[in-house]
């Protein structure tokens, strides 16, 4: 395991981490509740983007259906809450288990294909999940499901308290990032990255490439399921729209914007994307009119994303 070096991108990552930790203090001092609400959402989606980065950036698996796990994690919480199981000790493990199971099935079938076909088949599975959720008439169908009570952790932590919930989300994000960092630098992670660079060679020296890929795919799906459970608690609501393919596109944008294959990139990407969206939509109703071409320009002129600009890319 290598220790992080002091360079521009690590300095930025450290500053952003510190700012995220201190944000509730700022919010309490200035009485700006809005910024805390905004950043709770950002932190949750950053976790989802980080999990996508694990398969996309390190594993070379371009999943275009990652938002499905956000919905699955969210629906697990929402449905259990609606059926009277309010305890987070039941809801969250179920959310993770169902996400993992979905990832296992999708991964096992999708990993038979490569390239654009992989992009499309993951998209197809996410669309299927979207339509299943739309058809759950018992749980709101198209209109979505209101979560009347946030997950209950038996007095350990109160999710309805803004600050406590924010720190829980932040802890999940840091925990997720640490896990991804450990995975990427482990033997397992090195094999996965080796498969991304040259699958045949890894096969030839005796690694069962697809098994490694599949495990990686399932881990990423599970982490994103956690983000989904957090998101449902944050909005007190879950709807099929969370899983729509444009949401998966948003997650991809965050990863690429921040810098694919850089540990902290997706966090930066999520912050920049969502803050920009917020600022632009305050400035004009037609924020996408600016955001769209901006994305195009980033792709054309800033390969490797923001972390790439800061001078550290892992991109193959």
């Amino acid at each position: 395991m290598k220790m992080p070096k002091l360079n521009a991108s690590n300095a930025v990552a450290a500053i952003v981490c510190a700012a995220l930790v201190l944000l509730p203090v700022y919010s309490a001092v200035t009485g700006n509740i809005f910024i805390l609400t905004l950043f709770t959402r950002i932190v949750i989606l950053a976790l989802a983007a980080a999990s996508l980065n694990l398969i996309m950036g390190y594993g070379g698996m371009m999943s275009f259906g990652h938002a499905a796990y956000l919905g699955i994690g969210g629906y697990a919480v929402g449905i259990l809450a609606a059926e009277g199981f309010g305890s987070g000790f039941i809801q969250w493990p179920v959310a993770l288990a169902v996400s993992a199971l979905f990832a296992l099935v999708v991964g096992a079938l999708s990993l038979r294909t490569r390239g654009v076909y992989f992009i499309m088949i993951t998209l197809a599975f996410a669309q299927m999940a979207y339509y299943i959720a739309s058809a759950l008439s018992r749980y709101g169908g198209d209109d979505g499901l209101t979560v009347y009570k946030r997950s209950d952790f038996a007095g350990l932590i109160n999710l309805s308290d803004r600050t406590q919930f924010y720190y829980l989300c932040l802890a999940c994000l840091f925990g997720g990032l640490y896990l991804i960092w450990r995975i990427v630098n482990s033997r397992f992670g090195l094999v996965v990255q080796g498969v991304r660079s040259n699958e045949q060679r890894m096969q030839a020296i005796g690694f069962h490439a697809n098994r490694y890929r599949l495990v990686c795919f399932v881990i990423a799906g599970t982490i994103c399921g956690l983000a989904g459970a957090l998101l449902a608690n944050n909005t007190d609501f879950v709807s099929p729209a969370v899983m729509y393919w444009t949401r998966s596109g948003d997650l991809m944008v965050m990863v690429i914007l921040g810098g694919m294959g850089s540990l902290f990139g997706p966090v930066i990407g999520a912050i920049v994307f969502l803050v920009l969206e917020e600022l632009l939509s305050q400035f004009t109703e037609y924020w996408a009119l600016i955001m769209g071409p901006l994305l195009l320009l980033i792709v054309l002129f800033a390969r490797g994303g923001i972390m790439g600009l800061l001078g550290r890319t892992h991109r193959a």
């Binding site: 996309m56 371009m62 275009f64 390239g115 654009v116 992009i119 444009t246 596109g249 991809m252 944008v253 690429i256 694919m260 037609y286 924020w287 996408a288 009119l289 955001m291 769209g292 071409p293 901006l294 994305l295 195009l296 980033i298 792709v299 054309l300 390969r303």
Partner: peptide, 23 residues
């Protein structure tokens, strides 16, 4: 370019066109 770059750039175009039409 990478397929992923193309997906991202044209995704941006979708956002642009939707809002341009709305405008």
């Amino acid at each position: 370019r990478d397929h992923l770059d193309q997906v991202l750039a044209t995704f941006g175009l979708i956002l642009f066109f939707n809002d341009a039409v709305r405008l």
